[in-house]
C-alpha cells in the first residue's frame, strides 16, 4: 500500500512530538512558579526527554535533535553557549551505546540508568560552568536539582509511555 502525502505528514507530525516535548519542558522549567527556589532546583526535564526517547525510540531522538535541545537549554539558562549542548551530546553518545541493554529491562533498571546518567550530566555541567565562570559553583543547589530530577523521572516517563502507546503507535 502506498502512503499518501497526508499519511506521511501525519506520521511526521507524530514523530516530531518527542522533540517538541523537549522544547516545551525547557520553557516549563523557566516559568515563574510562586514556589520558593523552584527555579534554582527545577529538574532537568530536557534530559529526561532525551533519555526516555533515546532508550525507547532512538529513531525519534537523533543527534541533531539532542543538539538543538541542549542549545535551547543553554540559551535560556544563560550558561556559556555550548556547555549544556556539549554535555548532552556526550551523554547521548554514552546512552546510544547502552540503548540495547536498557530497552528490554524493567522500569526500575531504566530509572537507575537515568539516575546515573543525570548524576554524570550534572557533574559535567558543574565542571564546565566552574571552569568557564568566576569560581566554584554551589554544589548544594545541584544536589537538590539532581534529587528532584531523579524523583520526577518516573512521573514523566509514565506520561511519555502513555503518549507512545496512544499517539505514536508503531510505525
Amino acid at each position: 500500500m502506498r502512503r499518501t502525502i497526508w499519511n506521511r505528514l501525519d506520521a511526521l507530525g507524530r514523530e516530531m512530538t518527542p522533540f517538541f516535548f523537549g522544547i516545551l519542558l525547557i520553557l516549563f522549567s523557566v516559568i515563574i512558579f510562586q514556589m520558593p527556589s523552584w527555579a534554582r532546583v527545577a529538574p532537568l526535564f530536557s534530559l529526561m526527554v532525551i533519555y526516555h526517547w533515546t532508550v525507547y525510540r532512538p529513531d525519534l531522538m537523533p543527534g541533531y535533535a539532542v543538539f538543538l535541545i541542549g542549545l535551547l537549554q543553554d540559551v535560556f539558562c544563560g550558561t556559556p553557549l555550548g556547555v549544556i549542548t556539549l554535555v548532552y551530546i556526550t551523554v547521548y553518545g554514552i546512552l546510544i551505546f547502552q540503548q540495547r541493554y536498557l530497552t528490554g529491562r524493567t522500569f526500575f533498571v531504566v530509572w537507575l540508568g537515568f539516575v546515573l546518567l543525570s548524576a554524570l550530566t550534572m557533574m559535567l555541567i558543574w565542571l564546565a560552568v566552574s571552569a568557564l565562570g568566576g569560581g566554584i559553583s554551589d554544589l548544594n543547589a545541584m544536589l537538590h536539582q539532581f534529587l528532584l530530577s531523579a524523583g520526577f523521572y518516573p512521573l514523566l516517563a509514565r506520561l511519555f509511555l502513555i503518549w507512545q502507546i496512544k499517539i505514536l503507535r508503531p510505525v
Partner: peptide
C-alpha cells in the same frame, strides 16, 4: 515584568 526565572542550579538569571 519578569517572565522567566532561568538558569537552574548553575546560573542565576532572569528574563
Amino acid at each position: 515584568r519578569v517572565v522567566a526565572d532561568a538558569g537552574g542550579a548553575f546560573v542565576h538569571s532572569m528574563i
